[in-house]
């Protein structure tokens, strides 16, 4: 049984006004335990609306969200429980910081859960470590930190609730390449140490190809594709018809192959690309 699934989920914004638009249309997804699911899709394809349903921030107009076999909208308590089971971190989460110290801000979620002081302390220190914050930074004001550090504090604030599923809406948006790389490594590390599920909404296909274990493609408020990185990115023309791209290395390899160079068509990460090119050069005796 899937850890979380949605059944026939539909949602429309502005019902009854001339501005009515569909955001989700009969969406059925399953999230399995331990996976790193990447959700990709063009702007306005319904990704953000979908993730806000997963923890019960938005109430489905049609359909159900089921966690551990239970509809989260059964009563008030199940909705609140869903908030903590599915930790959602919005885009540009550094704007949600408000406390006087980093420690207190990370502790906001666990305190709301009603944990004891010792448990809160444990949660805060563990999640600060996951995001690479030094213990002495915990006593600083969050507003003294750099942009990248603020982002990591905000993510730690969600991790501290120990959610079974951590959902991150474009966690690396607006960071420099090194910051992106570092944050993605930290998130992967978190997933490996805790063996929790992570869901990432992303526009960066290189990141998706490198880190995701499964990819879900949203298009026009519907799920268009779902499968492994290879399965999704090998459907090059379909992906680009949805206004998306494949990883840069994949399109480079596609152009090389169209020049008649014999290279495989399932290269999605730079690491793999490097290996393939080196072996090609060796085969041709140029190395």
């Amino acid at each position: 049984m899937a850890l979380l699934e949605t059944k026939n989920l539909s949602y429309r914004y502005g019902t009854g006004t001339p501005f009515e638009v569909a955001a989700l249309d009969d969406v059925n997804i399953q999230i399995e335990k331990g996976e790193l699911l990447a959700i990709i899709g063009h702007t306005g394809s319904g990704k953000s609306t979908l993730v806000q349903h997963l923890n019960g921030l938005l109430k489905p107009q049609q359909g159900q969200v089921i966690i551990d076999g239970q509809d989260i909208w059964q009563d008030k308590h199940t909705v609140r429980a869903a908030r903590f089971k599915v930790g959602l971190c919005f885009q540009y989460p550094e704007y949600q910081l408000f406390e006087s110290t980093v420690y207190k801000d990370i502790a906001f979620g666990p305190v709301n859960m009603g944990l004891s002081e010792a448990e809160v302390d444990e949660c805060v220190r563990a999640s600060a470590e996951y995001v690479g914050l030094a213990p002495e930074q915990l006593s600083k004001s969050p507003f003294e930190l750099s942009g990248g550090e603020k982002r990591r504090v905000a993510i730690a604030g969600v991790m501290a609730m120990r959610p079974e599923i951590l959902v991150l809406d474009e966690p690396t948006a607006g960071l420099d390449p090194r910051g992106r790389e570092r944050l993605m490594r930290l998130i992967c590390n978190y997933r490996e140490t805790t063996s929790n599920t992570v869901v990432i909404v992303s526009h960066n296909m290189d990141e998706v190809a490198e880190f995701a274990t499964r990819v879900l493609v949203m298009n026009n408020s519907r799920v268009a594709m779902s499968g492994s990185v290879g399965e999704v990115f090998s459907r090059y023309s379909e992906i680009s018809s949805m206004g998306l791209t494949v990883p840069q290395i994949t399109s480079i390899f596609a152009s090389l192959r169209s020049l008649g160079i014999e290279l495989p068509d399932d290269v999605f990460t730079v690491e793999r690309g490097e290996k393939e090119l080196l072996s090609l050069l060796r085969r041709e005796g140029r190395l």
Binding site: F84, G87, G157
Partner: peptide, 13 residues
């Protein structure tokens, strides 16, 4: 709206 959703996601009531 955005900030409220973000804090609700952290269990604010």
């Amino acid at each position: 709206d955005r900030i409220m959703s973000a804090q609700k996601a952290r269990g604010a009531d």
